[in-house]
Design a protein around this nucleic acid. Structure first.
Lengths: 338, 338
DNA sequence: CTGAAAGCGCTAACAA
DNA sequence: TTGTTAGCGCTTTCAG
């Protein structure tokens, strides 16, 4: 008899049930070839001892941890929270637990976190964006941990991508605005440093404007962090450049612009059209409701979990997916009255 | 020489460095008694092989997993996302990884998730609220996994609590409103079933109104889910009961009330005062800015992680903490003009 | 200061 | 169908 400090082990169950540990293992793992009476004795013993298998030991023996990891920039951004919520749900339904880490937009930290995830034996890993350290990528490559880069779809990326085309999405936005007669357009972008999604949105906007023969001069571009108050502060300056429409890098920035415009008595959409990006649930409820780009964060989280886990289970590669985005025309955009 | 499919193990490092695995282990764990030249050889070997220690094996040997768990109702609620963000950050800084699971307000599912967390060997566990299955609690008790119930402080609860007094917080709200001359007060509460926080807020409001000799009749209480649109729908009915002030179970509900009132041309705060709960970052930015109860979600997540991990490391008990909450008076409340 | 060896709790051949 | 026996990769006495 071994000395055990706390929890019962398989050995205890085996003793109580009068079988070998192998049999206990078989029962736990649902092996079909255990006779009913034996199976019952084992299950009773498990019940009586309140035995819980040790996941670490099992991972060691099977070389499979039953966990997936996710490393995201922050959870304070509603759209990431929503995506992770879906990712967790899908993983859970497929029998996997989620190890979550937040990188705070720090690629150096992200690298450490990836290393940690590999040590923990995650079978799949979700990352955000396509910008990562060289070292991080090589770590992933030689550990052969399945991984997907999400939120951004880039056909040229080396790692599997599940996300949407941030640049292309802006084409719809620009086309919409130009179609409404707007010619003087500005952009309140998210911080583009260390954020390829924000950069693509800016680039996409610029390119599509050019396509229409329009310019996006530097004075009409302001980058702000994910913050309503900082977005508000930037609006007045942008307005002074004579714009009639404003493209925002995300919904939160758009909220700032809208609220500040209203405070400045600038009528939206009559004097200024505003377009957001993300389509947070609040956006449809504002007065006026925000015209924005809907991205399926939930669908993305869901698809990522399923793709990752399927790839693990079939030891196949992950197919990249370019998810659709959709411009939702609501009340903050209208014909240019000028 | 063993056959290895994928990753290098300690044995490989030991061979390459010409030492025993015990020495490799010592170097990894920063044992001071390894001579410098040997230590260097080992570190070089680790570097060259890109060796990563196997967390599962280590957990098995040390009986410590280096993980903490958190089970929350949802991540779609911004205030939980914020709390978990802080919890993760603090845990990470203390060297622990986070295993996160979402219960979708389902106590049955929560029970399964707790079981899973114990199997995974989490050293500490964060739960939300004080309402849990009997079985869940006993599981926790006999596994002796440290745990805290958060978001709600209840002096009578059996498990350690780190949160705020949801009922007491409403006293400030009611006092504020009554002090402004309001006598006809209604409440747009969150769903109280399976949610002790929402229930406490409702009870606290009712009690404090009684204290002032005021009533909260059933027709002035409406429960709605965490949703702006459902909150909006409920407003008209509430307004028809002749209220001059509305207490909301959370900020999102308050947004709905505010936006709907504005749409109905009911002036806030002149004709209707509104108070929220949570103080999400958006609340201060609305027009008018929302009067609400500030709860330190970040502080709570942070305190929970620190308390949990400290208790684990000193194998001591967790001290419950009643965190302060603060009424933030902004623009949605004013003197009763009646 | 370093090495040898015995597990940690579980699973997976291989026998029986 | 069930038991026996090696490990999975790491840490940790205990010797030397």
């Amino acid at each position: 008899m071994k000395s055990r400090s706390s929890m019962p082990t398989q050995i205890d169950v085996a003793e109580l049930a009068g079988v070998s540990t192998a049999t206990v293992s078989r029962v736990i793992n649902g092996s079909s070839d255990v006779k009913q009476p034996v199976r019952q004795r084992v299950q009773d013993a498990i019940e009586r001892l309140q035995y819980l298998p040790h996941a670490g030991a099992r991972a060691l023996a099977t070389r499979r941890s039953g966990t997936v990891g996710a490393i995201i920039p922050t959870l304070s951004n509603a759209i990431f929270a929503e995506g992770i919520n879906a990712f967790e749900r899908a993983s859970q339904e497929l029998g996997y637990s989620l190890i979550l880490a937040v990188s705070h937009q720090d690629l150096q930290l992200e690298d450490k976190l990836v290393k940690n995830m590999i040590e923990r034996g995650v079978e799949g890993l979700l990352l955000v964006g396509n910008e990562h350290n060289e070292h991080t990528l090589s770590l992933l490559a030689q550990s052969s941990v399945r991984h997907v880069c999400t939120w951004a779809y880039d056909a040229t990326a080396s790692a599997p991508n599940i996300g949407f085309d941030n640049a292309l999405a802006m084409h719809d936005v620009v086309d919409h605005l130009v179609g409404l007669g707007h010619r003087q357009i500005g952009m309140l972008a998210g911080l583009t440093q260390f954020n390829d999604r924000a950069l693509k949105r800016l680039d996409g906007t610029r390119q599509r404007l050019l396509h229409h023969g329009l310019n996006l001069p530097p004075e009409r571009i302001v980058e702000v962090p994910y913050s309503i108050s900082e977005s508000r502060e930037a609006l007045a300056g942008l307005l002074s450049t004579g714009i009639t429409a404003l493209v925002c890098g995300n919904d939160v920035i758009a909220y700032g612009a809208l609220l500040e415009a209203q405070k400045m008595q600038v009528s939206v959409p009559d004097e200024l059209s505003i377009v957001g990006f993300d389509d947070l649930s609040l956006s449809a409820e504002l007065n006026p409701p925000l015209t924005t780009v809907h991205v399926g964060a939930t669908a993305m989280g869901d698809a990522s979990a399923k793709a990752l886990i399927q790839a693990v289970q079939q030891s196949s590669a992950i197919a990249s997916q370019c998810l659709p985005t959709r411009l939702v025309q609501r009340g903050t955009t209208s014909f240019c009255h000028c």
